[in-house]
Design a protein around this nucleic acid. Structure first.
Length: 579
DNA sequence: GCCGTTTTCGGCCCGACTGTTTTCAGTCG
């Protein structure tokens, strides 16, 4: 069982324990354990197998969880989890997913009204049985009925890129409101997380007063795509946009803006850590500022820098705030200078209408120049990818000859590399002969078929590609499509070590549905010194614009300009790939 | 269940909001 599987098991234990009314700190210990394992940059299995290593040294993992990891790896299951699954009916989990309901209320509904399905719950609401239950009432009943509609639609988090479009649209709307001093998005959107569950906007009103705050909140509520106002108080409005997506706006006093921004940016785990550090220094941090114990006057809070400074740390970039490495880096003055989209000068994965792209080679080249790129690689599919009209040797060599021909047109403006996205065949081996690959400048290898093969087999295929001297890069190394398709079972430890050994570059595919490698893998690659290329995998000229989504993920992995090869000037990059 | 520069017990981040209550529990982030 891999780390993701172990983490999922611990998360499920934590979730199920809620319904059993267990000690909340014990529940949190399982959640923390799950997170620690998910964030680990090597496999639990390999740590356990090494007698010189101790998994219990990982913060959040103790003796008990080590034993449970071992059991999961040995047997694939966990008696404690099986028992909980037997004890907790599925309907409880479904009920608790309804906004406003949690484990306690779910249990009460299920036990007192004998609810066996969400349909039972709907009927119980319609007959006022819920409203008559102690601890419930008319309003709760109404919100449950509401929530039954929404629960399904809001189950899925949206891509960061979609959240970004929405946030920009709302920003444009808010910019038309007079009386806003400052506004800033917080939450997982600001942290650049690959998916986001809601949006949080912080606003400081000009001449902060109740009237002015109200005017800003009114304007927020007038957003054209608002479908519902979920709640509105003196400082906060929550609206629903479209079917189910929630957007919160909070009014903040200017002297508290930094503390609020820090607080609402999260992550929760990061905040818990900062507040623990504060406590150790006799301080308290909340969304209003930093306070000495027992005092009412804040000693910091107007900027995030002040908040971090109060606990002796430099400002930490939002993308790093997951309670992974960032506190260790910050306290030892080793925070990475994260890569920026402006650092990118090349794009080394794109398709043309020779296969499944929509634009011609020249159109892609021109679009790359418009975007300030200095070099690109044309990497159409190879023959095995029949659906895309993949290139056989003859067509590929023809395309490469054409690139040779037009290079002079682009001389001094753009270097066009003769590339290919060559399939790694199901049986192993490359889809094009070595003597053909040898004639290209840039060969990326990727898996498209046989994605469901067992771990050993798919890992062997990728290792084979890494060992091939003509292969420069492994594209979308896990094949996952966020919310749609799980990653292939691949031993990423082995792949990264092999990449290091053979000087093979690993791709971070910037497509918002892929973002593959993910942040944890990127951190692992960086630690090993495996070079990364961030590529758009564009299938049209517009497709070149997804680069910035890849940059978000790279930043979350802690990557700097030096970790990413397509930040290199053409002269330096050319030496690297010997093109 | 984890953890330790007040260590092997007794803590574990912090506050808002809601709806239900007459002082609080549950939920959420």
């Amino acid at each position: 069982m891999d780390n993701a599987g172990i983490a999922a098991a611990f998360d499920e234990i934590a979730e199920l324990m809620e319904f059993r009314g267990e000690n909340p700190f014990r529940i949190r210990a399982y959640s923390n354990g799950a997170r620690a394992i998910r964030d680990l940059d090597e496999s639990v299995q390999s740590i356990l197998a090494d007698p010189d290593r101790d998994l219990a040294k990982v913060p959040g993992i103790g003796k008990t969880l080590v034993e449970k990891c071992q059991t999961l790896i040995d047997t694939g299951s966990l008696p404690a989890l099986e028992k909980l699954r037997d004890q907790v009916p599925d309907v409880l989990i479904q009920i608790a997913r309804i906004p406003g309901l949690g484990a306690k209320k779910a249990v009460k509904l299920q036990e007192e009204l004998n609810i066996q399905s969400l349909d039972d719950l709907r009927k119980a609401c319609q007959t006022d049985e819920v409203a008559n239950l102690k601890g419930f009432g008319k309003k709760t009943q109404a919100s449950i009925l509401d929530g039954l509609q929404i629960a399904q639609a809001s189950a899925e988090r949206i891509y960061w890129s979609d959240g970004d479009s929405l946030a920009r649209a709302i920003s444009r709307h808010m910019e038309q409101c007079e009386g806003i001093e400052t506004m800033q998005w917080a939450g997982s959107y600001r942290r650049g997380k690959e998916t986001i569950g809601d949006l949080d906007l912080l606003v400081v009103a000009e001449e902060d007063s109740p009237e002015n705050r109200n005017a800003v909140m009114d304007h927020f509520e007038s957003y054209a795509d608002r479908t519902q106002t979920i709640g509105r108080g003196e400082t906060k409005v929550s609206i629903r946009v479209g079917k189910a997506f929630q957007v919160d706006m909070r009014m903040v006093a200017p002297e508290q803006f930094g503390a609020a921004l820090q607080y609402f940016t999260g992550s929760q785990a990061h905040n818990i850590h900062t507040r623990r550090l504060a406590k150790e220094r006799g301080l308290k941090i909340n969304e209003y500022g930093v306070f000495r114990d027992g005092e009412d006057q804040p000693i910091a809070g107007s900027t995030e820098q002040d908040v971090y400074e109060a606990i002796g740390l430099p400002w930490i970039a939002p993308e790093l705030r997951e309670d992974r490495q960032e506190f260790q880096w910050a306290s030892s003055d080793q925070l990475p200078d994260l890569i920026d989209v402006d650092d990118i000068v090349g794009d080394l994965h794109m398709h043309t209408n020779a296969t499944d792209g929509t634009a011609t080679l020249r159109e892609m080249a021109d679009a790359a120049i418009e975007r300030g790129l200095k070099y690109i690689a044309i990497t159409d599919h190879s023959q095995r990818v029949t659906m895309a009209g993949g290139l056989d040797p003859d067509r590929l060599l023809e395309q490469w000859a054409m690139i040779d021909d037009i290079r002079s047109e682009y001389d001094g403006r753009l270097m066009i590399l003769k590339g290919i996205e060559c399939d790694i065949l199901e049986k192993g081996g490359m889809d094009l002969p070595d003597d053909v690959l040898a004639q290209g400048d840039w060969v990326i290898a990727s898996v498209h078929y046989g994605q469901k093969q067992p771990r050993d087999q798919i890992t062997e295929r990728i290792l084979g590609a890494i060992e091939n001297p003509h292969v420069d890069c492994i594209a979308h190394p896990t094949g996952r499509l966020i919310n749609r398709r799980p990653p292939y079972e691949v031993d990423m430890d082995a792949v990264l070590h092999a990449a290091k050994e053979h000087d093979t570059i690993m791709e971070l595919n910037a497509n918002p549905a892929r973002l593959d490698l993910n942040d944890v893998h990127l951190a692992a690659a960086k630690k090993l010194g495996v070079p990364i290329v961030i590529s758009t995998d564009a299938h049209s000229t517009d497709g070149l614009d997804v680069m910035r989504f890849g940059i978000c993920q790279a930043r979350r992995g802690g990557l700097t300009k030096d970790d990413v090869v397509n930040t290199l000037s053409w002269t330096k990059f050319r030496k690297l790939v010997k093109a």
